[in-house]
Design a protein around this nucleic acid. Structure first.
Lengths: 215, 215
DNA sequence: TAGATTGTTAATCGATTAACAATC
DNA sequence: TAGATTGTTAATCGATTAACAATC
């Protein structure tokens, strides 16, 4: 019951390790030392070893880490060894982009349903999955065990939709709306705020200019 | 020349402040104390005051912060008082989603060009902007001063495209490809790795389950 | 003036880096 | 065995929180 708490900083680095280990696997690299990996990833070797040792000793003294093994283990930590059923709510451009993004399936994220409010989209299919109307959502969730709901809807719709989701016992929300969700704490929320990201870029451009003289 | 360095943690919180202050403005709230804002945003009041004081004293003892003024000032810090010209490379679903996302313009990000390699898209327009072929990119950049390039292309294309961009003196890249960019350090990169985000969600689901028993 | 709330210093907490003994 | 490299402890660095004097 009492697991040692893993810090957010560590968790957010795991997918990046996973990505690099995937590339190394594809490149046919069999083993790698924390030092070599640190150069590739531009982080310290110390950090890599510390991060990994939060979860267990995956390496071997004098040898390093077995790339395939380490990748699999990190995959397990991330829960990628299990499949995750997902629906997408909001079939605007972004929702369609997610629905079409086949690579998710490779990591076990299975799109089981698509929803929108626009009657013109009703019945249209994306990758073989029909778009349903939002008022069918509740019934759909009762019949289909869904873990994750991706929200690609305007922020004005968020409250209404998230109430349905919570009521139907959804476990996790992948939120793309430009607002924070305030939900019961047993619902896990991961937000992608694109405009926040663009503003950070803008900040960095602006501050770089200040340091190096206008242009 | 010698500016006090602002930490990444602080910078990444600025857009969120900006967002909340926008909502407060819309709600007609004129002033707010760090304490009230802290409750709304679920951060400590201390952190808010520390964050803001990296940039200057925007508040007033005994009064708090003027919402509109503070929002404007944070906007300036983020560089939102200036406009930023942008192109989008890769007109798949995600590229189209960005191109259609009008709200960026509200914050001064102006989409000036769209590019793809698919000849079937040649000349098609999104919000009045024609899609150009990638081989026109270099010529386009020579005639149009572009600050930001959004990359919504497969990772296999990244190297080729980013070489052109760097050669043409692009200042900043908003990267959606599932790979890290290794560019000269005067090119500012902000990456959005959607699959990393989804994996973090998956981690949190998985670890929540472990703590609270399988289901 | 009294009350409220900032700006800022000091204390604490956590994360990163360095160092090295353990061990393959 | 000697060399390499991990796992892990200790040292450092940075970020967050607490506290309070300054001041509106």
């Amino acid at each position: 019951m009492e697991e040692k708490e893993i810090s957010k900083a560590v968790i957010s680095r795991l997918p990046r390790y996973y990505r690099y280990l995937g590339e190394l696997t594809n490149a046919g690299v069999e083993r790698i030392s924390s030092n070599d990996l640190s150069r590739k990833m531009r982080v310290t070797a110390s950090q890599i070893r510390q991060d990994l040792n939060n979860f267990g000793g995956f390496g071997q003294q004098g040898y390093g880490y077995n790339v395939k093994y380490l990748r699999t283990e990190i995959g397990k930590i991330l829960g990628l060894n299990q499949s995750h059923s997902m629906i997408i709510i909001g079939m605007g451009n972004l929702g369609q982009a997610l629905a079409n993004y086949a690579s998710f399936e490779k990591n076990g994220f299975l799109v089981k349903g698509l929803f929108d409010v626009n009657p013109r989209l009703d019945g249209r299919e994306v990758r073989g999955i029909p778009i349903r109307m939002l008022d069918e959502l509740e019934a759909f969730l009762k019949e289909n065990p869904i873990e994750i709901a991706a929200l690609t809807i305007p922020k004005t719709e968020v409250l209404r939709v998230s109430e349905i989701l919570v009521k139907c016992g959804i476990k996790a929300i992948w939120n793309f709306a430009h607002t924070d969700l305030n939900l019961p704490e047993d619902v896990i929320v991961e937000s992608v705020h694109l405009s926040d990201s663009l503003m950070r870029l803008s900040y960095n451009i602006t501050s770089y200019r200040k340091e190096h003289g206008e242009s």
